[in-house]
Nucleic acid binder design. Sequence first.
DNA 1: AGACAATTTGAAAACGTTTACAGGGTGGTT
DNA 2: AACCACCCTGTAAACGTTTTCAAATTGTCT
Lengths: 352, 352
Amino acid sequence: MGNHGYRTRENFLAKLGIKDIAAISGVSPATVSRTLRNPDIVSEETRKKVMKAVEEGGYTPSRFGANLRTQKSGNIIVVMPDITNQVNAGIIRAIESEAQKAGYSILLGDTQGLPEREKHYANMAQSGQADGVLLFTFHMPFNLNENQPVAKQLPPIVNSCESIPIEGISKVMIDNIAGARTAVEHLLSLGHKRIAAVMGPRDTPSTLERLEGYQAALNDAGIKIDEQLVIRGDYGLDSGIGAMEQLLKLRLRPTAVFCFSDDMAIGAMSVLQENGFRIPQDISIMGFDDIRYARLMTPALTTIHQPLEEIGKACIELLLDQLDGRSEPGRYIELPFKLMVRQSTGPVPTDR
Amino acid sequence: MGNHGYRTRENFLAKLGIKDIAAISGVSPATVSRTLRNPDIVSEETRKKVMKAVEEGGYTPSRFGANLRTQKSGNIIVVMPDITNQVNAGIIRAIESEAQKAGYSILLGDTQGLPEREKHYANMAQSGQADGVLLFTFHMPFNLNENQPVAKQLPPIVNSCESIPIEGISKVMIDNIAGARTAVEHLLSLGHKRIAAVMGPRDTPSTLERLEGYQAALNDAGIKIDEQLVIRGDYGLDSGIGAMEQLLKLRLRPTAVFCFSDDMAIGAMSVLQENGFRIPQDISIMGFDDIRYARLMTPALTTIHQPLEEIGKACIELLLDQLDGRSEPGRYIELPFKLMVRQSTGPVPTDR
DNA sequence: AGACAATTTGAAAACGTTTACAGGGTGGTT
DNA sequence: AACCACCCTGTAAACGTTTTCAAATTGTCT
């Protein structure tokens, strides 16, 4: 009755391995593995024996061994510029929930907007720490080796929110151009002609697209763009404050302000109210995103709704399909936005 | 000139392993490993040779092999009830940033308040998917085996926000009792006597503690607690709305409302303003947390500030110390809160 | 009874690192 | 010249699984 090189039962303080369970239940490690991963292919008798040993020993298979053998980490890395942002948080929440159902875990990559951190997370994927990448930032963070074809070097990627120009990766987007256009057309329909825009961070695809929508809507209405009314922001609260202060200094003030994010709209509203302006009687404010606080502002914020949960779900679904070989990369999903008319926008003031 | 069992250079589309790099640079795999992990102990000449091969081959060490060998994942799992919550998001952001500096990655565990999901994430730690756990939920999610001592079975844990009664784990907290007391004393100092409380989720430690502070402050002021003024909430926006609606139906309304979270305070404010009440002239509103939107409300929300970044940093620091053996578990760090007096609280109305 | 298929199991290799140990070389000291 | 210490490097084992392949057992059909 020899020790097969397995640990003895006496030594029960040590963490049990698959060999220990095999020894205890009198089967081979292979059978233990099969019992846990693929119960159908072992006989009921063996299954019972093994499960008993597993439960009594409190055995959980070590992920290290399994990962090495299968060359899969079971992780998906989410690369985002700012987890603190309501939009991102809402998306990642949906992602995490769906990923967990499918047996995957989420590695959080908050880049704080820094390209070197984006690189870091890309490396993690390339070193096998993650099986796939969900990319919400606007740089291409992967190091490519010119000797090899691009497709071979990239892990499965799904790109959302900020469209990155990489050939053949899947994307989940809303139509930012149409969204911004809808926002501006709403203001135009209320009679506004001097409509300011508070943009997001310079050169991000989403900002450029929303700007395009803004310009297109004004063009169509035959209104010339006034560069003074187009202010640079960064999607954050404080930049909304700064932008509004800047706009209030203008000789000819806008009658409506379209902020490219709700956060900036909230910042702008607070500046107006502090300075005694009435919203929307004096100035209309329009946001973008429809974060949960938007409808609770006083006045409630008119904005463009983004379907965060659907975006998250679509992203993870596309990625999982790719990981399981159920579909090819390069797919594109466009999700609908929605105009939410609330109290922060109203007819253009007639008295000036 | 034999093939050592390593892949040949011709085969360059395949991913290179440490043996390939070793073969290319004419050293042993051990030396390659040393060059990357511990450059100081290899000669400069060898280091150059190896680094050249590493760069040209675009080699990144596989984490699978390293993890298995070292029995470390390099991951830390953060278990939180809701990443969408500004408080949690702020904390996890600081955590992630510090963890990355130390070479660790963050696994996101958003439990959505479900105990089974907490269990799931605990299992991940126990199966080696994470080296340590940051616990922000209020259940004890670990399965313990009665045959073994408790301490042996738990991974390194740091507990924050909601205090969990487990012997010997480290904690990072603010003094919720004192925080709530400070809030209520602020209202008392303005002359309020009918002060309502909108609580968090029932039976959570933080709610119980804040309730205790509320009761203590009123007791000290010789004011009897009116059970009608103590409303159950869940820290979310909507429960603030519901609570305020309930309070407005009362025959004898409160002159001030202390919400145990800013989100509930924001919900409450919107109800008041919708119904034509002036804040703070008719009713004062007080929050807890000082989320970034608090100061931008109109009126700006008076609240208790929680140092989110410091909390996150303290958590990860404690955990890293423990992982590196620099300190023992069971430490306790208390961080200071701060009363932020803004415009949503004012003197008690005299006209009634 | 014999052949064959289906079911179940075990042996052993493989995944890619890190590190304990030992050995070779170099330079300095006696 | 012998010895020692030190620096650097290579060999080989180990980490804990999963899975291929083959063998053993059982059942089915002629």
